[in-house]
């Protein structure tokens, strides 16, 4: 009963007899009601972004906050001249692509699984469990899971008579573990998105394709995938966003190590600002992360245009 009326409620001019709903005050009443939400978001989420951008263009010292010289893009130039930053950026890119590819593969595979699994209600509920666990708990569980003594991975390797691998002692392996743990935690949500897309695909189209002699794989490529484009785009945006901003999980799983092999951008930004007290540099990294998020989202929306009209 609830959904059918949704479209009508907002934006239409009500006929005269309906106007007594508006007694509350045409403009100021609703604005006053929205104000607490707008204010708290404005002060604590929007303003810091602006403040961060401003600091990235100035030389700000933690110890003398009043001495702030405008330096233009010097902070950005310094970052890109710094091998540590370039290394972090490069490894972040590898990580993000890893999360996207593995995460998308998982989303499609498990999305289809949940769609076709008979009596899948329990599995569907189970799928989302990792998403509700705090990043620190996920990190601890995974750290233990891949321990060279006592971990599940070593249990398996020793069962096959091999020596256990120290996953977190090698830079590239550690990056792989961080990737898998991020996918484990974040992909369940995109599985859910893909599943919700699959449930809206018109069954007639499969039948038509089948009549035309398309096999299961062809039906998937030519019918399923084009029909769930919006969900694929949303999933990609979701995975990218989570990967770029992965912080707690990495900090608790590897601490950025070994060496700096998993010190990805968010961790790098935190260390630069809160430990090295380079506020301006850290703010510049923050802006770079925001720009990267935005650029990736725009690319996806361009690659997977959604025909659906925007809902408000």
């Amino acid at each position: 009963m609830t959904t059918q009326v949704a479209e009508k409620s907002v934006g239409e001019r009500p006929p005269a007899r309906k106007r007594n709903l508006r007694k509350f005050g045409q403009t100021w009443g609703p604005i006053a009601a929205a104000l607490p939400a707008v204010l708290i978001v404005g002060v604590f989420l929007a303003y810091p972004i602006g403040y961060g951008f401003w600091m990235s263009l100035h030389e700000v010292s933690m110890f003398n906050l009043s001495a702030q010289d405008f330096v233009g893009f010097t902070n950005y130039q310094e970052l890109f001249a710094d091998p540590a930053f370039r290394n972090s950026l490069w490894r972040t890119m590898i990580f993000v692509f890893g999360v996207i590819i593995i995460g998308m593969a998982q989303s499609l595979a498990f999305g289809l699984t949940l769609h076709y699994l008979p009596n899948g209600r329990f599995v569907r509920a189970l799928n989302l469990v990792p998403y509700f666990i705090s990043s620190v708990a996920v990190a601890m569980v995974w750290r233990f899971f891949v321990q060279s003594d006592g971990g599940f991975t070593s249990f398996i390797t020793e069962a096959f008579g091999q020596t256990a691998i120290s996953w977190l002692a090698d830079g590239n392996l550690a990056l792989f573990v961080v990737t898998m743990a991020t996918v484990w935690m974040m992909a369940p949500f995109s599985v859910l998105l893909i599943l919700s897309g699959l449930q809206t695909v018109n069954a007639d189209m499969y039948e038509a394709a089948q009549v035309d002699g398309a096999n299961a794989f062809q039906r998937f490529i030519h019918v399923t995938l084009p029909s769930i484009r919006p969900q694929i785009a949303t999933s990609l945006i979701w995975l990218t966003f989570q990967a770029f901003n992965s912080f707690g999980l990495i900090l608790a799983l590897t601490g950025g190590g070994p060496g700096d092999s998993t010190e990805l951008l968010a961790v790098y930004m935190y260390a630069l600002g809160m430990e090295n007290l380079d506020i301006s540099g850290s703010s510049a990294v923050m802006i770079i992360i925001l720009v990267l998020n935005a650029v990736f989202s725009l690319i996806y929306l361009k690659l997977f245009p959604t025909d659906e009209p925007e809902k408000s």
Binding site: I31, F247, A266, M286, S297
Partner: peptide, 29 residues
């Protein structure tokens, strides 16, 4: 949801857009 008041759209966007910003990024400011 119920009122078509002035600046409704702008304020709505204003509330939504910061959701797209990672929280870690805000720590230093």
């Amino acid at each position: 949801a119920r009122y078509a008041f002035k600046w409704r759209h702008i304020l709505l966007l204003f509330i939504l857009v910061p959701r797209l910003v990672p929280r870690v990024a805000l720590i230093v400011p």
